[in-house]
Structures are given as structure tokens and as C-alpha cells.
Design a protein around this nucleic acid. Structure first.
Lengths: 337, 337
DNA sequence: CTGAAAGCGCTTACAG
DNA sequence: CTGAAAGCGCTTACAG
């Protein structure tokens, strides 16, 4: 491995001069020296050691995507990333970071870890946090001293940068669409309502729509769970047994909605004739289902891009005060309602 | 930020003693000193700077997942990670690395980059390469000097560690299952056959099965493309127009198979009655489709685990000679054949 | 059991 | 325009 000092030796100059050439501080180097050094750099295939650079400059160019792991994260037990949402988001974040010359570190953070430790460990320049909930701000995300952007997080603090989809509005238009299509007995499927997050915001939107159209809210029509064949079958069976009480379901994610539709099929419930189903996300797989999934679409790729851009503007000091962005949602009507 | 020297000052000892306590080299420190230092470490919430450590020790604990980007990788144009395969794999790799105390860096590598540069940049301890093809070994993956594992890569070198699914066997049993179910006019859909890779191996298996059962091979029944609504519709239309020539399709991935089934629906082709479809991967979404997708299942989570374990065994010098692993496939019969 | 010192590969005031 | 030197935070022979 060629180091600066080796290059300096070969070129018969000081390390500083080499460093100046590498960092393109050309005003400090004569053209002749510069060209001689550049040639050697080229020949020796010099590659800087970014650890050394970071140690000195305190700029690592590493951005971390941190996902708090709320439940068991052994992928054998919980394939969290079954949901293509994650792949699409990660794809976008990696691309946008790389385009700007940053490196992408990715990590689930379990409840016992404190993100700030990892940040110091690696001199992380900035952090994108996905799906944080309020109480985690006092534990996992305590004392984060680098620029950070909270994605899909409802953390109830004004001084943090936050990007979310307009989840409440999304829940509202989903439910409103069901109502406008003539449904009156509308259930909802979410992950967990224990904490305020994406799921509960969409749930608020659901309740808001019911209220606006003077439909009664019934807590027995609220189902909490995670996408799986079992859960879909369970809800399918329940609705089969209480058919008179349901004519529609708002499901808070597409992957979950497809799981529900599957459960309905298994129990002979016709979608949308007997029970209409509307999802949330607008994933590609929703276009492939039978019936094709009506859903509330969010632009996941854009979300990743926004997160990176906001973070980088923080890093560059272009944006100082905290920003809160609400990304728009869009109703996509297909066949399941 | 507390550094070792600050701690040393507070404890009235040398930096070396602090370092020994941090690294649990207890034989070199008296119990009394050790406890005093540990208390200070605790109180000051000391976190080591891993850049400094790496600079000295040359062990970064960073593992990189490198994916060569064969085509345009702007996620606005090509949502590569639409395929939940990637999410599941990344999930598993991250988990298994973290469990072993490693950090996970993730990056697409475009054709102009050389991975070895990135490795030197970051002192990467090891690399997992996903989906490399032969000629990339002379460009992108030239001169990799750290332990590396090639996943889903057919690179034709004995001295590299390789983990692949038994793709040829998978293609064979998929096609054989179609034949045994009475189909004789079997097409195949793959990504690209230009290079030897996962797609072409599955294609060889397809040809092998045709041969074994003395069915003619017809190059007009081979379709190359990428999963999208358009491609599904295109194939749907083609098969509609040449209905007499098809009664089954082996599709090299589940996400692509679902795209085909969608195209068939749009053109009124009944699956499996008119054309049977078998996929490859065994993703969750295949259980949700209509009809449920018959497929060749691979264990993606296991694949990620194997990749990490093999790489770590290389790092620890437990495994010296190159290993080639073939992961088993399994026929999962559902409804689409 | 403990310390002083060198060194990993870089950058950056400072001096000339 | 160029160099000598200090220093980023750590580890590691070496000496006592």
C-alpha cells in the first residue's frame, strides 16, 4: 500500500506537497512539481487511507441508516424486510449518498444500544433514522450530536428534522374512498397502536374520516398484527364469522393488505364484492395482485432522496433550523375497492 | 469526546494502562488500577475512536456488501430492489455481521469503479460480492486483497470462495415439474443470458430437463427482460397470439413470475389451465398471489448467514483453501402449475 | 505491574 | 512555492 510518505520519497518532496496535490490545492504547488507527483500517484495507483484522513479532519463521509429494532430481529423469525418498502428506500438512500460522495453504513439498533456510541465509534457524519418513536428519543437516540434526519418518525420534538409521509391524510383519503364507494362498515388493520408512529397516524386519519361522515367508530373493528399468512387467515376467519359487521377494510400497508386479501380468499370472502380492501404504500406488488390493489401511494424513492438531501444540507450548514416535511399521498384506484 | 489520554490523566496512569483495561488485557494491570480506570470509563461514557484503532491495527471490522450495477442504477428508472429477495438477503447479512461484532457497509459498484480502491479507502476487512459475472473479475473486482465471498456469482475461478444456490438443479426441477404435470410446450423467461450468471444457470437446467424428456428446444420460447408491468404485458400478448405454442412457462424469479401472471390476466390467459407458471425464489409474495405461485424455493436468509460465516472463517484463518458451496433448492407446489 | 515513546497515514498551521 | 513538525486517538514492542 502506497502512502503519502512513500510518494513523497519517490518524488523527492515533502509529504505536505503530496497532500496538497492530492487535495487539489494547486495554488500551493508549482505546476512542474504537481505534474511529477500526479504521474507517480497514477503509476503507484495511490489510494488514500480515509481512516487517517478522518482521524485528522473529523469528517468521515459515512452516513448511517439506523433502524430501531422494535421486536425480535432475528431474520429467521421476523423477516422485516419481506416488505419491499425497505428495499426501495435503501436503494434510494444508497444511490443518493453515493452520488454525493458519501458512504453508506446500515444498521439495526437494538434497545440496549445507544446510537451516539456508534456515531463516536465511526465518526459518523450524519444519521438517517427510520421509524423512531417518541420514547426512544430518551434511550436509543439520546444525545445525538451529529446532523440527523428522522424518517417516518413521530417524535414530538420541534428541534429535530423530520420527514414523514402525510400519514394521517393518507388514512383519511383511504377511508374516505371506501365511504364514497358506498361502504359503511369499515375495519382497520395496523401494526401496533401502542406507540405514536406511522400506523397510529394512519389510524387517526381513519377515525377522522369516520367522524366526518358520521360513521360510528367501533374498537372491535381495529386489528393489530404483522404481515403473515397466519394473521391474514385469522382476520379472514374473524370477518367470515362476523360478516354482517364488515364491508371494507383499510390496511395500513400494501404487504399487509395482500396478506389480508389472501386470508379472505382462503375463507371464501370475495374482494371487493363482500369486503373492499384498500392498502397503503403503492408498491409494485400491489399491481400484481388479484384483484389489483387499490391503495394510497407514497413516493418511497423520493422519500429516500429527500432524506439524503436534507441531511446533506444540514452537514453543509445550508439549513440551520429544524425542518418538518410532509410528503404527499395519492389515491391509486385499482380493483380491490 | 473523551479520549484515552484524557482518561489517563484523570486516573493518573499512562495511556497504555488505560488501553490495556479497555482491551481487557487484565494480566497487565493490577486489580486496583483496573477498577479505578473502569469507574472513570463508565462515568465519562468513554467510546473508542475506531478510526484511530484501525489506523494502528489494520482491522476495521467493516464488511462491505458490493453489488455490481450492471445497468442504470438510478432508482427512479430501475427499482432494482423492488424484488424482496434483496431486502431479505440484506436483512440476514446485517444481522449476522452485527451478531459477530462487525459493521455493515453497503454499496453498488458501477463499472468505472474498482472495488480494491474502496477497500483500501476504508480498510475493509472483507467483502461479500453479490451477482458478479466473469468479465468483471478483470475490472471491478481486480486485485482484491482481502477475504471475499462471491454470492450468486459464476466467475469461473477455483481460487475464489463462492456460494450459489444450485441454480441449474433448480431450473431442472422446475422444468421437470412442468413436464411431469403434463406440459410439453414450455417457454422460459430470464433476465439476460448475455453473461453466465444465475439466470443462465437456471436456463441450462431448463434445457437439461427438456433434453432428458426429449422435448425440443425452441429459441423462440426464450424471453429476456426485467420485471415490469410492460414486460409482463408484452409476453402476455405474444403468448396470446401464439397460444398453440405454449402451455407452460418457467420464470427465473418469483417477482418476474408474478409479472408474467399479471400480463396473462390482462390478456385473458388462464393460469394454470392454459399456461402453467413456475417461479424461482420462494418469496412471501408468492404465497399471496392468485393463483398462489408454484416455485423453486431457496433459503435466502440462510444464504446470507452462510456468506457471513464463510467470510468470517476466512478472516480468522480457519478456512484457507477456497470453498464452493451449492445451496439446495426445493420444489414448492402451490397452484400455478 | 507500569510508563515513555514510536508509529499508523494523514492534514494543517507555521516558518521560510 | 516548499518543508519540518505537531497532532488526530489509538496500540504495541521495549524497558524497567
Amino acid at each position: 500500500m502506497t502512502s503519502i510518505s512513500k510518494i513523497a520519497e519517490m518524488a523527492n518532496v515533502s509529504k505536505m506537497t503530496v497532500s496538497n496535490v492530492i487535495n487539489k490545492k494547486y495554488s500551493k504547488v508549482s505546476k512542474k512539481t504537481r505534474e511529477r507527483i500526479e504521474k507517480i500517484l497514477e503509476e503507484t495507483n495511490y489510494t488514500p487511507n480515509l481512516f487517517a484522513r478522518t482521524l485528522k479532519s473529523n469528517e468521515s463521509k459515512i452516513i448511517m441508516l439506523a433502524i430501531p429494532q422494535t421486536m425480535e430481529n432475528d431474520p429467521y423469525k421476523n423477516k422485516a424486510f419481506n416488505n419491499p418498502f425497505y428495499g426501495e428506500l435503501i436503494n434510494s438512500i444508497e444511490y443518493n449518498l453515493r452520488k454525493s460522495g458519501y458512504f453508506f453504513m446500515f444498521r439495526f439498533i437494538n434497545g440496549h444500544e445507544v446510537l451516539q456510541k456508534l456515531i463516536i465509534n465511526w465518526n459518523i457524519d450524519g444519521v438517517i433514522v427510520l421509524g423512531a418513536i417518541k420514547h426512544e428519543m430518551d434511550t436509543i437516540f439520546k444525545d445525538i450530536k451529529v446532523p440527523s434526519v428522522f424518517l417516518d418518525s413521530y417524535i414530538d420534538t420541534d428541534d429535530k428534522d423530520v420527514i414523514v409521509t402525510d400519514d394521517e391524510q393518507g388514512g383519511f383519503i383511504a377511508t374516505e374512498h371506501l365511504i364514497k364507494s358506498g361502504r359503511r362498515k369499515i375495519g382497520i388493520v395496523v401494526s401496533s397502536l401502542k406507540d405514536i408512529g406511522v400506523a397510529s397516524k394512519r389510524y387517526y386519519g381513519y377515525k377522522k374520516a369516520l367522524k366526518k361522515y358520521q360513521l360510528p367508530f367501533d374498537s372491535k373493528k381495529v386489528f393489530e398484527g404483522f404481515p403473515s399468512l397466519e394473521f391474514g387467515n385469522q382476520i379472514g376467519q374473524y370477518i367470515k364469522e362476523h360478516k354482517e359487521r364488515f364491508d371494507a377494510l383499510f390496511v395500513y400497508s400494501d404487504i399487509m393488505a395482500l396478506s389480508m386479501i389472501n386470508g379472505f380468499k382462503n375463507h371464501g370472502i370475495k374482494v371487493p364484492e363482500e369486503v373492499a380492501v384498500i392498502g397503503f404504500d403503492g408498491l409494485y406488488i400491489g399491481e400484481l395482485s388479484e384483484p389489483k390493489l387499490t391503495t394510497v401511494k407514497q413516493d418511497i424513492t423520493l422519500k429516500g432522496e429527500k432524506a439524503v438531501n436534507l441531511l446533506l444540507s444540514k452537514l453543509n450548514g445550508q439549513s440551520v433550523s429544524a425542518e418538518h416535511h410532509y410528503l404527499p399521498v395519492e389515491l391509486v384506484i385499482r380493483e380491490s375497492v
